[in-house]
Design a protein around this nucleic acid. Structure first.
Length: 217
DNA sequence: GCGACAG
DNA sequence: ATCTTGTCGC
């Protein structure tokens, strides 16, 4: 059920292909760009599943007013299983398809997954950010790889001695942040700091939206 | 070889 | 991610 490199009981011949694709995309990563103080509109994306279908939703959110500006949703068929380290093969296609329908501009993409905090420095958030050519941040609820240097509320997460992210501990919950694309780790953290380090409301909402969409279909 | 493993 | 009962707390 959870073994790596296995698809329907057999080693997946697509893994080598996926790895090379991931490494090629990683080479296009842009380490900086967006500044927290200029981020006004975000686009949160997430997906839920039922059998072979993905129910993907995107919410455009205005940080100043704390309101949802627009919504998009799309039901698509999934062609890849979940394999740790290769989540992008399962979720990037549905997400990219939905985002191609978003005509309005936004300042930052928020993805419910890791970005640079990944074995190959190219988690789903990084892959999507690179394909969309947009500033992107990865927000994950659990750790995939790396070591946490326990601190009070902000704990550095390193991998191979490289600082790739932070774990943020709040009263309610804790989560991990890492760069997706076109924004530095420092600005990513500053963005969350300006919002009181709370888990992004738009991500919480898009998760609910995704499950609501799944139920009514 | 063994265990760990985003969503 | 999804499945799934009871239970704790406001």
């Amino acid at each position: 059920m959870k073994s790596i490199d296995v698809v329907e009981g057999r080693p997946s011949p697509l893994i080598p292909f996926a790895r090379q694709l991931q490494l090629r995309l990683r080479d296009l990563f842009v380490d900086s760009g967006a500044e927290a103080r200029n981020i006004r509109v975000t686009l949160a994306v997430d997906a839920s599943y039922v059998d072979k279908y993905a129910f993907t939703c995107a919410l455009m959110y205005d940080i100043r007013s704390g309101q949802i500006i627009r919504k998009w949703k799309m039901k698509t068929e999934v062609y890849f299983p979940y394999i740790p380290g290769y989540l992008f093969m399962r979720e990037a296609p549905p997400i990219i398809k939905l985002l191609s329908r978003v005509d309005t501009d936004y300042d930052l993409l928020l993805i419910d997954a890791h970005g640079r905090l990944h074995p190959r420095r190219a988690g789903l958030a990084t892959v999507v950010g690179i394909l969309m050519k947009k500033p992107t941040i990865g927000i994950a609820k659990s750790l995939l790889v790396g070591s946490v240097e326990k601190r009070k509320g902000l704990s550095p997460v390193t991998l191979d001695g490289e600082l790739l992210g932070y774990r943020i501990d709040m009263n309610k919950m804790s989560y991990y942040v890492s760069q997706g694309n076109m924004i530095s780790l420092e600005e990513s953290l500053r963005f969350l700091k300006r919002r009181g380090y709370e888990y992004p409301e738009e991500l919480r909402l898009v998760d609910l939206e995704t499950k609501k969409f799944r139920s009514g279909s």
